[in-house]
Deep mutational scan, measured.
Amino acid sequence: NQASVVANQLIPINTALTLVMMRSEVVTPVGIPADDIPRLVSMQVNRAVPLGTTLMPDMVKGYP
């Protein structure tokens, strides 16, 4: 099973992602692959992302 990117904390709308905000976890449904975490750094979320939420491609501005 492939690990996905999961919010490690509440991420407010328009926040630029940092490594501490994300963790990898095997979840269903599958979200953004954990391998993409380095690419996500400094990209902004377009909505508030609660703790434990799987990051989906449509939540991150400019992804992929």
Rank of each mutant, 00 (worst) to 15 (best):
Arg47Leu: 12
Val30Glu: 08
Pro64Tyr: 08
Asn14Pro: 02
Asp58Leu: 08
Val20Asp: 11
Val49Asp: 02
Gln9Gly: 06
Arg39Trp: 07
Pro29Leu: 04
Asn14Cys: 04
Val60Ile: 12
Gly31Thr: 01
Asn46Cys: 03
Ala16Pro: 15
Thr54Cys: 04
Arg47Glu: 14
Gly52His: 08
Ile13Val: 14
Ile11Gly: 00
Ile32Ser: 00
Pro38Met: 09
Val60Gly: 01
Ser4Gly: 05
Glu25Cys: 04
Thr53Glu: 06
Asp58Arg: 13
Val41Ala: 05
Thr54Trp: 03
Pro50Cys: 05
Pro29Ala: 04
Leu55Asn: 01
Ser4Val: 02
Gln2Leu: 14
Val27Glu: 02
Ala48Phe: 13
Ile37Tyr: 03
Val45Met: 06
Pro38Trp: 15
Ala34Leu: 03
Asn14Gln: 09
Met22Asp: 02
Ala3Val: 07
Ala48Val: 12
Asn8Asp: 12
Asn46Arg: 09
Val60Pro: 02
Leu40Ser: 00
Val45Gln: 00
Met22Phe: 07
Asn46Gln: 08
Ile13Arg: 09
Met56Asp: 04
Gly52Arg: 04
Ala3Leu: 11
Ala16Asp: 09
Val41Ile: 11
Asn1Glu: 07
Ser24Cys: 04
Pro57Arg: 09
Val49Trp: 02
Val27Ala: 06
Glu25Phe: 07
Pro29Gly: 03
Gly62Tyr: 06
Asp36Pro: 00
Asp35Ser: 15
Val30Pro: 14
Arg23Lys: 10
Asp35Phe: 13
Thr18Val: 07
Asp58Ala: 10
Val5Leu: 03
Ile13Ser: 12
Asn14Leu: 08
Leu40Glu: 01
Thr54Met: 03
Thr15Met: 09
Val5His: 01
Pro50Lys: 13
Pro38Gly: 12
Asn8Ser: 12
Asp36Arg: 13
Met43His: 09
Asn14Ala: 09
Val60Lys: 00
Ser24Glu: 10
Thr28Arg: 10
Pro64Ala: 11
Val60Ala: 01
Ser42Met: 15
Met22Thr: 02
Pro57Cys: 05
Arg39Met: 11
Val30His: 14
Ala3Phe: 09
Pro50Asp: 12
Val41Phe: 05
Asp36Cys: 05
Val20Tyr: 15
Pro33Lys: 12
Met21His: 11
Ile13Glu: 15
Val20His: 08
Pro38Gln: 12
Leu51Ile: 13
Ile13Trp: 08
Met22Val: 07
Val49Pro: 02
